[in-house]
């Protein structure tokens, strides 16, 4: 592959994770996403036909509103035929194994499968059994590559760069696929990444992924440019990983006081859905100067358009 091709294309059949992607591939996807942001911002622009007559299946084994809708919208903007399959209506409930489901769908000859599954590695397993391209829309606590890309795009839009930024990821690192994908992506692009959480929510050996660990917000947020807050699931808050909601909010919830430890122009990101009053102060979440939470959603569609297109382009090239 020539250097030119490396810079101007996405060289993989699937998008299963950020880990292992070259900076060039990431930059290519981000650049392509950025073009779509401009496209989406112009209300006069209608549907595109880049994915006309292509079949794209959203296969979600886990509940999702924003990611699924975002992919659906992205596909439709590109002119693809979108199908949604969710757990409630699928044959999984009837006892079919993951591989059988994959084989069945494969027989219908889709062009892209967008898959979310509650088990780490399940999307990769599925990708090995089908002929089409697969995009990982989240597999257990492993990876969520499109979320990391849209976070990166949001940061780029606001800060014009990623390299050299100090970025803190706060909250339930242990159970978060968003954290893992973000750590890989931001490190690959040269940011300085740190994680902040009580020790019960920090998985063993996280430092080897290239992050610095902090147990308190004050030292963790010092000089930080970007704060990525993670959602803490309520069932993890009553005495198992964290004693109570109020204790968590007191020490790890982001409010004005703790925000003051960070740089004065620090930007807040949150992958959603937010628990207001648990990990983030409500008023802060709505402050458009500091929080880019709703911008992220907008970037999400553009990023997913870019990813769908990249996978199709790769397929077309392979067929040539």
């Amino acid at each position: 592959m020539t250097e030119d091709e490396l810079i101007n294309s996405y060289p993989h059949k699937h998008l299963l994770g950020i880990e292992g992607l070259l900076p060039t591939s990431i930059n290519f996807l981000l650049k392509s996403s950025n073009d779509y942001v401009d496209y989406l911002n112009n209300k006069k622009n209608g549907k595109l036909d880049i994915l006309k007559n292509k079949i794209c299946i959203n296969l979600f084994f886990e509940n999702s509103t924003r990611t699924r809708t975002s992919f659906e919208l992205a596909g439709k903007k590109l002119g693809a035929d979108m199908l949604n399959i969710s757990v409630g209506t699928s044959s999984i409930k009837k006892g079919e194994t993951l591989i059988d489901t994959a084989m069945t769908l494969n027989a219908m000859q889709p062009d892209i499968l967008v898959v979310r599954h509650h088990d780490a590695g399940a999307v990769k397993l599925l990708s090995e059994k089908v002929n089409c391209g697969v995009i990982n829309a989240g597999d257990g606590p492993h990876e969520h590559p499109t979320q990391a890309l849209l976070d990166a795009l949001t940061i780029l839009k606001r800060k014009k760069k990623i390299s050299g930024l100090k970025i803190a990821i706060c909250g339930d690192i242990m159970h978060s696929r968003v954290a893992r994908s973000n750590i890989h992506l931001l490190n690959t692009l040269g940011a300085e990444v740190r994680v902040i959480a009580p020790a019960t929510l920090i998985p063993k050996g996280i430092e080897s992924l290239g992050v610095e660990t902090f147990y308190d917000m004050k030292s963790g947020l010092k000089d930080v440019d970007i704060i990525i807050m993670l959602r803490l699931q309520l069932e993890r808050m009553s005495g198992s990983f964290v004693p109570s909601i109020r204790e968590y909010f007191r020490f790890y919830g982001l409010d004005r006081e703790k925000l003051n430890f960070a740089n004065p122009d620090a930007l807040i990101l949150h992958p959603g859905p937010m628990n207001r009053g648990v990990e983030i102060d409500s008023e802060l979440a709505d402050d458009i100067d500091r929080s880019a939470i709703f911008e992220q959603v907008q970037m999400g569609v553009a990023v997913r358009m870019a990813c769908l297109k990249a996978i199709i382009d790769h397929k077309l090239k392979a067929n040539d």
Partner: peptide
């Protein structure tokens, strides 16, 4: 350490 010293859920230690 645990609520009502039952050994199940940890208390609000930091608070």
């Amino acid at each position: 350490i645990t609520r009502n010293f039952k050994g199940e859920e940890i208390c609000e230690l930091h608070l």
